[in-house]
């Protein structure tokens, strides 16, 4: 289990298998929500997650693959591409501070 303080989150990465569809959908929603907090949101294939990501989000079924390369970075899974509760958790931690745990 990893954790990060919401105030330290500057880069959120959304990963999916190909990085061309699903992760783009999620990244676009989160980018809009996190825009007021100057947090960058990007999307990548799950095998190509950048080292400097503060938080990684991916489909729950990809969690194991994502964690292979992310060390102690917080990695959270989502079930729904549209308005998953985990998006609210990430936004709340960034907005209000406090620990975000996976």
């Amino acid at each position: 289990m990893s954790s990060i303080d919401g105030a330290a989150i500057k880069k959120v990465v959304i990963a999916c298998d190909a990085g061309m569809g699903s992760s783009v959908m999620v990244a676009s929603q989160l980018a809009k929500r996190l825009k007021p907090y100057s947090v960058s949101v990007s999307h990548t294939p799950v095998n190509d997650i950048p080292d400097d990501a503060d938080v990684v989000l991916c489909q729950s079924t990809l969690l194991a693959r994502a964690r292979k390369s992310t060390g102690d970075t917080v990695v959270l899974g989502f079930q729904s591409f549209l308005g998953d509760p985990v998006f609210d958790r990430v936004e709340a931690a960034i907005r209000d501070g406090g620990s975000l745990d996976d």
């Binding site: 959908m25 990244a27 676009s28 999307h43």
Partner: peptide
């Protein structure tokens, strides 16, 4: 990306 944002 732009069109998928619109889709979302």
């Amino acid at each position: 990306v732009g069109i998928l944002s619109a889709l979302a």
